[in-house]
């Protein structure tokens, strides 16, 4: 899992709203930096990194909500939550498949067919979740979200 980036110029004595703009700017950039290859089912850690970055951004938006114009903040947070939910649906399947894959060798013969059916069902859900995620990570959509977040950061009440 990628570590959170340092926030340049972060200062505990500066106004809360100034910190809000700094933190949201950095956390938003992290999300987009991790957006490449997230639909690749062979490289599930990529999606995990983007999901964690999205969680951090969401947390920053929630922590600093009082610093932003209400309507603009609500819309941005809604978009980020939608992205986070779509990433989460895929990630849940990735984790379950990985967990069950590790048990295969130790599973008694009688239960192996049942286990294979369960894994296959989860793989189908994983593909569905990936299809549902695809529109959210299209470059055009991400660019729009990035622009929205940039404007939000600029609008922090100072």
């Amino acid at each position: 899992m990628a570590r959170a980036r340092e926030v340049p110029g972060f200062d505990c004595e500066e106004p809360f709203a100034v910190a809000a703009a700094r933190v949201v700017g950095v956390r938003a950039a992290e999300v987009f930096a991790h957006s490449e290859g997230v639909l690749d089912l062979e490289e599930i850690e990529r999606l995990h990194d983007m999901r964690v970055a999205t969680r951090r951004l969401r947390a920053a938006l929630e922590v600093f909500d009082s610093c932003f114009p209400r309507k603009r903040h609500r819309r941005a947070l809604k978009r980020v939550k939608e992205l986070a939910d779509a990433l989460g649906e895929r990630r849940d399947r990735d984790v379950a498949i990985e967990f069950l894959g590790g048990l295969e060798a130790e599973t008694p013969q009688d239960d192996r067919a049942g286990l294979a059916v369960l894994v296959e069902r989860l793989r189908a859900e994983q593909r569905e979740a990936n299809e549902a995620l695809a529109p959210y990570v299209k470059p055009k959509r991400l660019k729009k979200l990035r622009r929205r977040l940039r404007k939000l950061a600029k609008a922090a009440k100072r």
Binding site: D11, C12, E13, E14, P15, F16, A17, V18, A19, A20, V63, S66, C67, A156, K157, R158
Partner: peptide
């Protein structure tokens, strides 16, 4: 929470 006040006391509340 006060957007104009320093980060630290706001952060402590949170």
């Amino acid at each position: 929470l006060d957007p104009a006040a320093p980060l630290r006391p706001n952060a402590a509340r949170l």
